[in-house]
């Protein structure tokens, strides 16, 4: 809810008329409040000659958790590649806080607050948990703060701080990947299949952490095969098929759509 919702601008001049500047500022604030933090508008993307995305449009508003669902080959991971800057769209607009960022490098996007946790976790297996976390200090965050923040949210990582990441379980590695992303204090967190290859009980635990992160005001985009779990914490959901968005709406409605389709609910 915008601070200006339902209220007239309070600034007035001595002659009782509202100055044009004040009206413009109030209008701008109103527009900004409804500007998505991340928006894809008619995005098309291709691997060489193979067209993968055919005009994908989606919006993520501030503090919102959005789930992207779809079968294998629907274009979910390619959509995430566009969001993280790993792929440049062949057409369409990629907007962050209202500014077009098509072609921005992945490291530049990561630095400004777009954190992507890729499928397969991407931890450094030969480095310890602490060393992995300190890889996130490239943005200038002090090492002590990184460790405090990560170990507070994930106490299990504190217990294993000197253990090589590659020797931990899949769930713990995923926690490490999440922690490493979070300590950069991102505005947007993009999660690609965080439940991949994990036992359901571990997936539940991970999703409880994701819900906690969402409550802290981070905007989250989740690509997931366990639709049921992801929908449980989402504010909105999109369904993709054959490189296009085929449905969008409330998670409860989308669950019904999924149950009626070939996807299943991933229970």
């Amino acid at each position: 809810m915008s601070a200006t919702d339902g209220a007239e601008p309070s600034v007035s001049s001595s002659n009782g008329q509202v100055p044009v500047d004040a009206l413009a500022a109030a209008g701008l604030a109103e527009v900004e409040a409804h500007t998505p933090i991340l928006e894809l508008a008619a995005i098309r993307a291709a691997y060489g000659q193979i067209q993968v995305l055919h005009g994908v449009s989606l919006k993520v508003f501030r503090g919102e958790t959005v789930v992207l669902l779809g079968a294998n080959g629907a274009g979910k991971t390619t959509t995430i590649s566009v969001m993280s800057g790993q792929m440049t769209p062949t057409a369409g607009d990629y907007l962050l806080a209202g500014r077009r960022v098509n072609g921005a490098a992945p490291d530049a996007l990561a630095r400004i607050g777009v954190c992507t946790i890729p499928e397969g976790r991407g931890v450094f297996p030969n480095l310890t948990v602490t060393e992995n976390l300190l890889m996130a200090s490239y943005g200038g965050t002090p090492a002590a703060r990184i460790k405090d923040q990560a170990f507070e949210l994930f106490p299990r990582l504190a217990e294993r701080r000197n253990q090589a990441a590659g020797t931990m379980s899949g769930g713990e590695q995923q926690m490490l990947a999440l922690a490493r992303g979070l300590v950069t204090n991102p505005a947007i967190l993009i999660l690609d299949e965080i439940s991949m290859g994990l036992a359901p009980i571990i997936v539940d635990e991970l999703y409880s952490y994701v819900a906690r992160i969402a409550r802290s005001g981070v905007s989250i985009v989740i690509v997931e095969q366990f639709a049921h779990r992801a929908l449980a914490i989402a504010d909105r959901a999109y369904i993709m098929a054959h490189g296009s968005v085929t449905a969008e709406g409330d998670p409860a409605d989308m669950e019904a759509v999924l149950q009626a389709s070939y996807l299943g609910s991933g229970h």
């Binding site: 291709a46 769209p89 630095r111 607050g113 505005a187 981070v218």
Partner: peptide
């Protein structure tokens, strides 16, 4: 959701994204 924190994150992103220098790579 902590809306204050969400607004702050949005403002931080907006500030940083304005500074971003993009050389668009043509497909």
């Amino acid at each position: 959701t902590d809306q204050g924190s969400a607004d702050q994150r949005y403002a931080d992103l907006q500030r940083e994204v304005e500074k971003l220098r993009i050389r668009e790579r043509s497909p």
